[in-house]
Design a protein around this nucleic acid. Structure first.
Lengths: 175, 175
DNA sequence: CTCATGTCAGCCTTACTGACATGG
DNA sequence: CCCATGTCAGTAGGGCTGACATGA
């Protein structure tokens, strides 16, 4: 799947060794950060491929899922950006595409004339359900990770996100 | 730093709850994958900001670091793509920019007429050293992670990468 | 001839900044 | 008047696929 053939060794492990050999600091963090970058790339590629049949990308899929969570199937665009942590312009773009695909439509907010609501259409609801089954069936492309590892990952990354200001307090007591 | 204000709760934890409430499968994997996506975004933003003064992005910085590791300071472009797991076209693009910045120059391979060597210039070497000091000084923007967490992260992600075919065998014995 | 190495053109997606219009 | 919500235009960047040219 990657455009390049596999290597006979772990390139990041190798990088860590070289890093230390050169006397650089923070080899652990370097290796962890580089790993996140690489895994992100692989995951995104796999997920987007899984979503292709549904005319979705992961970014747009996330928006759709968020809308299904709201139960009325609608949300102000500002809320979407807030939850997904992306800029207003990015939301506009994502909603544009979802609207073109017929998965969402825009509606004016009943009381606040400034805000626009993204409303999930029936097609959108059907599509997100099908896409979700496809993704969960493939464990989001992360079939190389156990549930225990996944939880561990979440825990560590939640700590980072909290420190980064993603949300106020750390997720101290985990499952 | 994010374009959006922080939320009063962890959006991913909330998503996981909703996910389960809707009866979807694989909540652990969903939360882990979403976390990687989010953390990747934050990290990349921070790192690119740190590298801006050096006229570098993380992608190009990685190329430069790889070259310093080769000791002669040169590498065939094909090797670069191999190690960094990106397509030949991406390598061409990255080297183009690095060349324009004066950090690298292209040279024909002495014996194999097909291959081109990327050669680190003195400016390139100075720049990558300075950039590395900047990054390590900021722990790559991942100051919210301890060394122990970083190692744990690397271990779990290495398992995933191995399963994904990044390299043949898992990194069983760590440290 | 076939495979490997690069380069190019074209295309897609995400995301940001800054300017604006409009409503609260 | 000032703030919030969206939209738009413009820009940057990364990456990929496919077609090609060239050399091993």
């Amino acid at each position: 799947m990657p455009s390049t053939p596999r290597l006979p060794f772990d390139p990041i492990r190798r990088a860590r060794e070289n890093w230390q050999a050169h006397g650089f600091d923070e080899p652990d963090v370097m290796a962890a950060v580089t790993s996140i970058m690489r895994v992100h790339q692989v995951l995104l590629q796999r997920i987007d491929r899984l979503l292709e049949p549904y005319d979705l990308t992961f970014a747009r899929y996330e928006v759709l899922v968020l809308l299904t969570f709201s139960r009325t199937g609608e949300l102000p665009l500002s809320r979407v950006g807030e939850r997904l942590q992306v800029s207003p312009a990015s939301v506009t773009n994502a909603i544009d595409r979802l609207e073109r695909s017929g998965y969402v439509r825009r509606e004016p907010h009943p009381t606040d004339g400034r805000t626009t609501l993204a409303v999930l259409t029936d097609a959108g609801r059907d599509t997100v359900d099908a896409a979700t089954r496809s993704l969960t069936g493939a464990r989001f492309g992360a079939d190389g990770i156990s549930d225990a590892d996944a939880r561990q990952l979440f825990r560590i990354l939640a700590g980072f996100r909290a420190a980064a200001g993603d949300y106020p307090e750390a997720a101290a007591g985990d499952r």
